[in-house]
Design a protein around this nucleic acid. Structure first.
Length: 937
RNA sequence: GCUCGGAUGGUGGAAUUGGUAGACACGUUGGACUUAAAAUCCAAUGACCAUUGCGGUCGUGCGGGUUCAAGUCCCGCUCCGAGUACCA
């Protein structure tokens, strides 16, 4: 009987599904272990071989932990709201729910074929109203809270209102918009309800505000910064411009410090933590106030180097600042206005691309230095960004290269405040031990001391204060799209009011078309049923909107990251319809022990989800503030595109080796038309696309060879390899092991099937250990010491490697073990039974089959993992490699129990040693126990 | 520019963290079994020199250093990848 992987895999997949083998319980005497994959977006293209890489790794860990006695939660679901389904709907008119449903079905079939041990009873779909009800619920909670800086957590907005009623907002220490006006308790009470609502929006953790957004006219939607690559949209590559719109935002900035601190406590890759730190971009420094000569205005600048305050020779403001118009003198007015206009016209893209050229205009105004009272000219320049710090810079040309270049270009003075430093060529930006000079009370101090002294002086003279600035911007939460969660808000007098929790879910309405409306409203503007009947608390026809009893509902939907920002909690109690997850379940599962996914989510999903978790933690709704203890980024599996060369302007293809310096165009051809030695099937190419039907070919040795390029797998590059074909040919167990064998999990690697036969023949060899032809050959005899040693070496290495997620070396270890056992024709149950269990996380179908044939009725999943024992052969000698001056020369055997002195004595008298010593006397003998003996001559 | 990460045979990659570099696999070559193929098994396979045999020299991107001993640690570069950027 040969290894019939097809029959085995079908049989066990059906069995697992029937028996619900991998169902996790929310209570258990066993310790818990939660392994999570980033859930996929079910795209129309289906799975390719790159997708399962992480799933296979997490599945191995999940299965391993079950063997190790853990109650394992290993769920899977779908991030099923998203743009592709919507664009497909626009093109075809098919409802996104329909295509999503179809795609999910296909994903599920493909996933099932790979034998994953997911607990499908906990499946979630972000587009399911039973799920997004709770996404909307979290939105309402965010709306109903503000961030209190006194106790550093989110607090109910009602508490803030109480403070306003008692003493206004002067004394309130909370995160709010920079332009929040000050008011007293009396003012507050005198405000209309609308005014009060408007003011509260300055504090809410999700708020509606006029903001500059990245508007993509072609897609008719707003894009987040991370959805824009090189100034064009990530999807489709359409141009993006700036536009001011009323948008929902998330006050993630309130959590900047905690998101930064939280990184220290979690085991995530350093590179990813570094990315998040950079994204949050904390800068410590000071704000300094400069009076403007002849004006009431004060300019507030942010600087990380207040210690260089006495080196200021001019100031630069962002052209967009309103203040610029106020202070500009008559003489400079025309020039300044022209410059401001020019800046507005320059797109973000131009401004980014053109970092070299220096531009700026003098406003004619002067600021007064807070300490020296000297006049400092005020300039504007577009290298200063309105959105960062205060949009104003105190320029210290001797200490900052950009200020230096600006000063050189416009012939402004460059006073030197660094003792003994030459600044004739470039600025001195180091924060070292160099003492300051010409700096009044800071003279002689170096960076650290000066920082402290100057901030003290600024604060005591009320000329400034020590501050911390973050680069992290609040996240825009509105999308002008159909296929997303509706935002549960209605409008009364242009102001947003939340639905109540009992009204959720607010279900996505039907629309006739998925495009923006004629008036430029989002697609939900097309909905016939999108009015909110406040008295009856239900959605009614849009025609009935009268702004008295029936109000318009929000037309924007939530962005893609909303649903994925809390799904890991939902898996703990996925069926709960009275809360987002039950308290008991949350307390039992706590957090994710191992989270696997790509690093491309570093500053998107992985930051937003941490933010929501911190918020939910503040409200006491989840037990931990960081939801994933350990995170691994699996590397992408890249495709190997195959390229044919066509002589430009002809339909003649030249084989790779003949191209030389002919002018050819590179054409990607479907990888499936090329065999493993890169020879193109010419007939298949002719049939593939009509344009190649009459192509001619210049061949090498009668064959056409293609070139290759490694790049991301994508349908449009014809380099997608589908796992189904591999499963058909070799089986899921082979594919699972091969993907692990390909290389370290974290590393990006190109897909090629060159080595797959080696892994497949390993599994066949494993099968043959149990069979002799058609005969079962297992005996109950006692195993040989060699077999025991081989088994236990494998147990030790595999266990250690799984713990370190080094799955590639696990596969090698299995191969070595099976090779050794088959060489000694081992057929003992005592050896092979533990080996089956050892292999089970990697090749679960084969393991189940062999386990059953070994006479067991339970699933191998329930069996304890084998434990390593030291096995000694009846050796009495230990072979040491002997080296001279570090150079290995020969090996020598010593009795096991020989002590060091005796070893040294014996090695010196060995004839081999004499040969290498050549009569010299060794200076030193180094014996590294168990490893090596080195003789220094 | 800055911040991370990397570079090991023809190829993918190992190397217990300073101790016999190249495990395991692919590929290649030769052999066995077959009428033949497939499958399977055995042997060789870093480079160079020497081959009658023993053997020798070099070798982990480059140049230095520390050490009895360096792929691994330190200093200085080169190239590649990822992220990010007029961030004050």
């Amino acid at each position: 009987m040969s290894y019939n992987f097809k029959a085995i895999e079908t049989k066990w997949q059906a069995n697992w599904s029937e028996q619900q083998t991998y169902r996790a319980e929310n209570q258990s005497s066993k310790p818990k272990y939660y392994v999570l994959d980033m859930f996929p977006y079910p795209s129309g293209a289906g799975l390719h071989v790159g997708h399962p890489l992480g799933y296979i790794a997490s599945d191995i860990v999940a299965r391993y932990k079950r063997h190790k006695g853990f109650n394992v939660l290993h769920p899977q679901g779908y991030d099923s709201f998203g743009l592709p389904a919507e664009q497909y709907a626009i093109q075809t008119g098919q409802h996104p729910a329909t295509t999503t449903q179809k795609n999910i079905k296909r994903y599920r079939e493909q996933l099932d074929r790979l034998g994953f041990s997911f607990d499908w009873s906990r499946e979630v779909r972000t587009s399911d109203p039973a799920y997004y009800k709770w996404t909307q619920w979290i939105f309402l909670l965010l709306f109903d809270h503000y961030y209190c800086l006194d106790n550093n957590k989110a607090q109910p907005i009602s508490q803030l209102v109480r403070q306003f009623e008692e003493s206004g907002n002067q004394a309130v220490n909370a995160v709010c918009d920079a332009d929040t006006p000050l008011f007293s308790a009396t003012d507050w009470k005198a405000f209309s309800v609308e005014d009060q609502q408007q003011l509260l929006l300055h504090y809410r953790l999700t708020y509606l505000a006029e903001s500059e957004v990245n508007w993509c006219p072609a897609l008719g939607t707003v894009l987040a910064n991370d959805e824009i690559v090189n100034g064009v949209s990530e999807r489709g590559g359409h141009p993006v411009t700036k536009k001011s719109m009323k948008q929902w935002s998330m006050r993630i900035g309130a959590y900047a410090e905690r998101l930064l601190q939280g990184l220290d406590g979690i085991d995530w890759p350093d590179s990813l933590k570094e990315m998040q730190r950079n994204w949050i971009g904390k800068s410590v420094g000071a704000n300094v106030y400069f009076d403007v000569e002849g004006h009431d205005a004060t300019i507030e600048v942010f600087t990380t180097r207040p210690d260089t305050l006495f080196g200021v020779s001019f100031m630069t403001l962002a052209p967009e600042l309103a203040l610029v118009q106020e202070i500009t003198t008559k003489a400079q007015k025309a020039e300044v206005t022209a410059y401001v206009e020019k800046t507005k016209q320059r797109s973000e893209r131009d401004r980014q691309a053109d970092v070299k050229s220096i531009t700026g205009v003098f406003t004619g105004a002067f600021a007064i230095h807070p300490f020296t009272q000297e006049k400092v000219p005020i300039w504007i320049g577009d290298y200063v960004l309105a959105g960062y710090g205060t949009g104003a810079v105190m320029a210290v040309p001797c200490g900052d290269q950009r200020d230096y270049d600006f000063a050189k270009y416009f012939n402004l003075p460059i006073p030197n405040i660094f003792e003994g430093v030459d600044i004739s060529q470039e600025a001195y930006a180091e924060k070292g031990q160099t003492p300051l000079c010409d700096s009044d009370f800071l003279n002689g101090m170096a960076y650290q001391e000066a920082m402290q002294k100057v901030i003290e002086a600024l604060e005591s003279s009320k000329k400034g204060k020590g501050t911390v600035t973050y680069r992290l911007r609040d996240a825009i939460f509105s999308r002008q799209r159909y296929w997303g969660e509706p935002i549960p808000v209605y409008y009364k007098n242009m102001l947003p009011f939340p639905l109540s929790i009992e009204d959720l879910p607010l279900e996505l309405p039907e629309v006739e078309k998925y495009l923006p409306t004629a008036e430029g409203n989002p697609p939900l503007g097309n909905a016939k049923q999108w009015g909110w009947d406040l008295a009856h608390r239900k959605v009614v026809s849009s025609d009935r909107i009268d702004h008295q009893n029936v109000f318009p509902l929000e037309l924007n939907t939530m962005p893609g990251w909303a649903g994925s920002s809390w799904y890991f909690n939902r898996y703990m109690d996925a069926k709960n319809d009275t809360s987002f997850a039950g308290e008991e379940a949350l307390n039992y599962w706590q957090d994710v022990d191992l989270y696997l996914g790509g690093s491309e989510h570093a500053t998107g999903h992985l930051l937003y989800s941490r933010f929501w978790q911190h918020f939910l933690f503040d409200l006491g709704l989840v037990p931990v503030s960081e939801y994933a203890k350990k995170l691994i980024n699996q590397g992408m599996i890249l495709g190997e595109s195959t390229i044919a060369y066509r002589k430009t302007g002809t339909n003649t293809f030249v084989s790779k080796g003949l191209v030389n310096d002919q002018t050819v165009e590179s054409i990607r051809v479907d990888v499936n038309l090329v065999n493993s030695s890169y020879e193109l099937d010419i007939e298949a190419l002719r049939q593939w696309q009509p344009q190649f039907a009459d192509a001619t070919f210049e061949l090498e040795d009668g064959k056409y060879f293609v070139g290759t390029e490694v790049e991301k797998m994508s349908k449009s590059k014809y380099n997608v390899v589908n796992p189904d074909a591999i499963c058909d040919q070799y089986g899921a167990d082979t594919l699972r092991m091969y993907e692990m064998f390909l290389g370290p999990l974290e590393q990006a690697k190109p897909w090629n099937t060159a080595g797959i036969s080696g892994v497949h023949s390993f599994l066949k060899k494993m099968w043959r250990l149990f069979h002799e032809g058609d005969q079962w050959r297992i005996t109950e005899d006692d195993p040989s010491p060699e077999a025991l040693k081989s088994l236990h070496a494998a147990i030790k290495k595999v266990t250690a490697d799984i713990e370190q997620y080094a799955f590639n070396t696990c596969v090698s270890t299995f191969m070595i073990c099976v090779n050794e056992l088959s060489a000694i024709k081992c057929n003992n149950r005592a050896i092979l039974e533990p080996l089956v269990v050892l292999l089970a996380p990697f090749a679960p179908h084969l393991a189940e089959e062999l386990w059953e044939k070994l006479g067991h009725t339970n699933s191998v999943t329930q069996v304890a993992y084998p434990i390593h024992e030291e096995v000694y052969l009846t050796e009495t000698v230990k072979s040491y490699p002997i080296s001279f001056n570090g150079k290995m020369r020969f090996t020598h055997d010593f009795p096991l129990d020989m002590d060091r002195a005796a070893i040294e004595k014996e090695i010196l008298s060995a004839p081999q040693t004499q040969k290498y010593l050549e009569g010299k006397i060794p200076k030193k003998i180094i014996v590294v126990p168990g490893k090596i003996i080195n003789i220094v001559v």
